[in-house]
Design a protein around this nucleic acid. Structure first.
Length: 214
DNA sequence: CGGGAGATCCTCT
DNA sequence: GAGGATCTCCCGC
C-alpha cells in the first residue's frame, strides 16, 4: 500500500493560490469510494486562479456556482466544463477571498483498474492527463462540490512527496483567453504524467522558464 | 502528428 | 442567448 503520509490540515491550504498551486505538486489526492475502494493519484500539474483574475470564476463576485470558492480554504470546488466535463479545484487563501487551484493532471497510484473502467480505456497515460479526465477517473462530480478535503470525509489530500528543488516548470494557463499575463500553471519537469496541453503558450512559456534558470 | 470542429448544458447577462 | 478553466474524433499533411 502506498504511504501517502498525513492528511494536510486546513492552514496548509490557506495560502495565496499561486503558492498553494506550486505546493500541491507531488501531493496525493485520495478518493475513498462507498464500496471501500481507495483511488489515489499524485498531482503533477495545477493552475492557480485568484479573485482579481479575469480568468477566474470568482472574478465577478460570488454566485451560486462559485460560492464554495468564497468559503474556507481546503474545500473542494467542482464545476461542469462545456456541459461535459467535471473539473476539480482546491479552495485557497483566506475566507471570503475567492481563490482556488485547478487540478490539471496526475499520476495514477492505486485503484488503476477502477479508474480505467471509469475512463473507458486501458491507456494509463490517458487516465488523469487533464482536468476532465482526472475527475472522470476518480469519480469526482458535482456531488463532491463543497467537500472538505482537510477533514477526511472520503475525498482528501495527503502529504505525498514534493518534487525536488528546481523540478517545477512555470508557464501560462491553458484554455483561457484572458489572464494570459499570469504565469500560474505549474507542473513537474520531465514528468510523463502531465497533460498534453495544446496551445501556443505552452512551449514558449516552458522554454522561457528553462532559459531563465541559466 | 497537429489542427480544427462538434458535443452538450449549465451559468450568468 | 452566448459562451465557456475540455475532450475526442476526424481530417489532412
Amino acid at each position: 500500500m502506498t504511504s501517502a503520509g498525513r492528511r494536510l490540515p486546513r492552514r496548509w491550504f490557506a495560502r495565496p493560490s499561486p503558492v498553494l498551486a506550486r505546493d500541491l505538486l507531488g501531493r496525493v489526492l485520495v478518493h475513498r469510494l462507498a464500496g471501500g475502494e481507495r483511488l489515489a493519484v499524485r498531482i503533477v500539474e495545477t493552475e492557480a486562479y485568484a479573485f482579481d483574475d479575469p480568468a477566474s470564476h470568482s472574478f465577478r463576485g460570488p454566485t451560486p456556482r462559485n460560492a464554495v470558492m468564497f468559503g474556507s480554504a481546503g474545500f473542494c470546488y467542482v464545476y461542469l466544463s462545456y456541459g461535459v466535463h467535471q473539473c476539480m479545484n482546491v479552495v485557497a487563501g483566506e475566507d471570503g477571498v475567492g481563490a482556488a487551484v485547478l487540478l490539471r493532471s496526475a499520476e495514477p497510484l492505486s485503484g488503476i483498474a477502477e479508474m480505467s473502467a471509469n475512463r473507458g480505456t486501458d491507456d494509463v497515460l490517458a487516465l488523469c492527463s487533464g482536468p476532465g479526465k482526472l475527475c472522470q477517473a476518480l469519480g469526482i462530480d458535482g456531488t463532491d462540490n463543497g467537500a472538505d478535503l482537510a477533514r477526511g470525509t472520503g475525498l482528501e489530500i495527503h502529504e505525498g512527496r514534493a518534487p525536488a528543488r528546481g523540478r517545477v516548470l512555470v508557464s501560462t494557463r491553458v484554455g483561457i483567453r484572458t489572464g494570459l499575463d499570469r504565469p500560474w500553471r505549474f507542473r513537474i519537469a520531465d514528468d510523463r504524467w502531465v497533460s498534453r496541453a495544446r496551445g501556443a503558450g505552452d512551449l514558449a512559456a516552458g522554454t522561457a522558464v528553462r532559459s531563465r534558470r541559466r
